[in-house]
């Protein structure tokens, strides 16, 4: 904690959990889209999000984050109109996601090139978030650190190849946390690697070149 955690952040109101946190959840989806134009997004709201989203502008906040705006962007207020202007088809659904934190949202996006993706996470208070699922796979990261998601085939040596690259090519890089989840042995797997400090240039490009790695995404501190 530092003094700017108390005097700050600068944010669009009214609620750090229902507005600022919602923008940050949306931003995780935005990072996953990797600058590809968005065609359609389905946003599922659960728990308190489903009940009170209108009064807190949670819908606008999520959509603003999905479009890449920050929790301090004045555009949040007009996010629905901006999305329409950009030709983005959006829909808000309510569903009781079983066992989920009260402030949970699931964002399913479809890009113009046909690619799809899903982010599910919760706004856990004070603008902090916890991402629980990416593309249906369980992950767990807060977005407080720069986070690298490595999609890969679950085979021996892939983790070693990634961490060796990180260590030998980028001497300053330090891993803050590491988590692996997979669908099944030998199937699709995902590494969630939170790092200290700033990510070096070209890191995800280098990781993508590793054999059996299907994609690597940097989710910058949101």
């Amino acid at each position: 904690m530092n003094v700017f955690d108390i005097i700050g952040p600068v944010m669009i109101g009214p609620s750090s959990s229902h507005t600022a946190g919602a923008v940050r959840l949306g931003r995780v989806a935005n990072k996953l889209m990797d600058n590809h134009p968005l065609k359609r997004v389905e946003i599922t709201l659960s728990g308190s999000f489903a009940q009170t989203y209108k009064g807190h502008g949670t819908d606008r906040a999520l959509l603003a984050g999905i479009m890449g705006y920050h929790s301090y962007s004045p555009e949040i207020r007009d996010a629905l109109a901006i999305a329409t202007e950009r030709g983005i088809d959006y829909v808000f659904l309510k569903e009781d996601i079983k066992g989920a934190h009260p402030n949970t949202a699931r964002i399913h996006f479809i890009l113009q090139d046909g690619e799809e993706g899903t982010v599910q996470g919760a706004s856990i208070g004070g603008g902090n978030i916890l991402v629980h699922q990416i593309n249906g796979m369980n992950v767990e990261f807060t977005g407080e650190n720069n986070t690298i998601l490595v999609m890969h085939q679950d085979q021996p040596g892939v983790i070693a190849a990634v961490t060796q690259l990180m260590h030998f090519e980028y001497a300053e890089l330090n891993i803050a946390s590491f988590r692996l989840t997979r669908e099944a042995r030998g199937g699709n797997a995902i590494m969630t690697i939170e790092i200290d400090g700033h990510p070096p240039e070209g890191l995800t490009d280098a990781i993508r070149k590793i054999s059996l790695v299907t994609n690597a995404i940097l989710v910058r501190r949101v």
Partner: peptide, 21 residues
Amino acid sequence: GCNASMGKIVAAPTAGSCGIL
């Protein structure tokens, strides 16, 4: 009020108490 109308504020320490400082 600015906070309640989705304006830009500084949480200090929170959004709900942002008018005091």
